[in-house]
Design a binder for these strands. Structure first.
Lengths: 269, 269
DNA sequence: AGACTGCGTTTCGTCGAGCGCAACGGAATG
DNA sequence: CATTCCGTTGCGCTCGACGAAACGCAGTCT
């Protein structure tokens, strides 16, 4: 796109260009950061080739990025990689990013789409701690559990949170598996099998396990490292959340959880 | 400056910006990121004032940054803040840092063995910069500290990092010793004594010095030359990390730190 | 209700900043 | 010792970034 003296008169054709793309050289500099994020370590020549520009065109933005500590040179051979300045910026970012705040609008939509109650929970002191709740449209609603500690092995949220732990931590977190209903999982073996299933399919279900007549479906919320940091669930009376509706609800709740995860920096794009 | 005839002699009001040489517009764009990191949330006009440039000169870099998700608009009022793109870059950064890469599995094991949170920090610009964090099993996570600046004199990690400096560098790094709790060390003399103790025993402890109720134990990570390049800590509530547990925790954290040091090439005979 | 103020955003003409080129210095490699 | 490949730098030309001003919109004052 160096020189294109073509078609000045063709106004409508150029409408495909995204309006207000911004500053070209900044765009390139950010492209450099993304290249380094993808490749990990690269020389100026390599970066230039990746962007399709001249060496010097790549070098000077890199020098500027280096002055701001966003990239740094490796000792061996003048190669570049992302620097600690990025981490400093990330610190300021996470300070502003609150899980509840980011999740809330998505919870609202999920509650609206399903008509059921949506909960967000994190792991805390050997139990699930409910951080937020958005009530569904129906009059018949579960209790408000915000701020309460809920058993891990008898809820969909709990299962999702447990599925993110390794065996050692699982053992420490799990105490006695209390019985709440005849369908509560009270043996370690079956619970481990259930958690493995949760990991595989990416969501958890609990039907009449904490309370007879109560059904819930939950999916994991992940941070930038991919760790499970929270869980989002849709819950309602079992006569409304029937197995026939599971497919639909599972899709909605997993998509919502993925969306929140993206807002926390997980995944690409 | 279009008009302004012969204004060459006039001193340009470049304000306090850290001018990195190279590409001007990139420099400004990165300045915008730093402004947002400092202020947290700002409008275009505010950013422009901060940089000492015209509104539109600030707006377009912002638009470019937004296109790369490095900044995002808040719903209310078109204000801007740092975006999730920063987090993705940060994830890529830590993934490529040798130290984090080598330390992570050991951190996981340490977190699992102690049940507490493990942090890895390096010295950066007169403060401790947290590179990685593995949450303990009782994941009561008030904030994610990764990327944050932490005072050096009031934390176990900070003391370890300071203990690796000679007197000249110590003076350069230490500013005013802020008071956070009644137990914070705020005088140079006692701090030097404390650092000497850290050097002798090979670990540092901080009880209620940064925050009442917060206790941490840290040990040094060394590179090939034996220099202290990072610090690894175990931290948790003071009621769980009692003095009776210090012996056990100190052993675990020092062994873990030594293991990481070995992986970085330290101590091979 | 109407004028006003302040915001983010857009347009436009000008000019200097950033681009491509080519040359430089240094370090591996044969 | 010649060669090759790298990051880095000086230079002239050109295009892209800048500043000024106008615009649409919201909230606010009178």
């Amino acid at each position: 796109m160096s020189k294109a003296p073509e078609a000045i008169g063709a106004a409508p054709a150029t409408s495909t260009a995204i309006t207000g793309r911004g500053v070209q050289s900044v765009d390139r500099a950010l492209g450099i950061l993304e290249v380094l994020a993808r490749i990990g370590e690269a020389g100026v020549t390599e970066i230039a080739a990746e962007l399709g520009v001249h060496k010097s065109t790549a070098f000077r933005p890199v020098a500027t990025l280096e002055a701001h500590r966003l990239v740094e040179q490796t000792v061996d051979r003048g190669r570049y990689r992302l620097g600690v300045g990025i981490l400093r910026l990330a610190g300021a970012t996470t300070a502003r990013l609150d899980l509840v705040q980011e999740a809330r609008p998505i919870c609202r939509k999920l509650a609206s789409d399903t008509g059921e109650t949506v909960n967000v929970a994190v792991l805390s002191e050997s139990s699930a701690l409910y951080l937020d709740r958005v009530a569904g449209s129906s009059a018949l609603q579960p209790h408000n559990w915000v701020g309460q500690h809920i058993p891990l092995h008898a809820t969909s949220n709990g299962k999702v949170l447990l599925s993110g732990l390794d065996d050692a931590r699982l053992d420490r977190v799990l105490g006695k598996l209390a019985t709440y209903t005849p369908r509560t999982i009270t043996k370690r073996g079956p619970l481990r099998a259930e958690l493995e299933r949760v990991r595989e399919q990416g969501y958890a279900v609990a039907v009449d396990e904490l309370e007879v007549g109560l059904t819930a479906v939950a999916a994991p919320i992940r941070n930038v490292h991919g760790d499970v940091v929270a869980s989002m669930s849709v819950s309602g009376p079992s006569f409304r959340l029937t197995p026939e509706r599971f497919d639909e609800v599972v899709t909605l709740v997993t998509e919502a959880a993925i969306e929140v995860s993206h807002r926390l920096g997980w995944g690409h794009r």
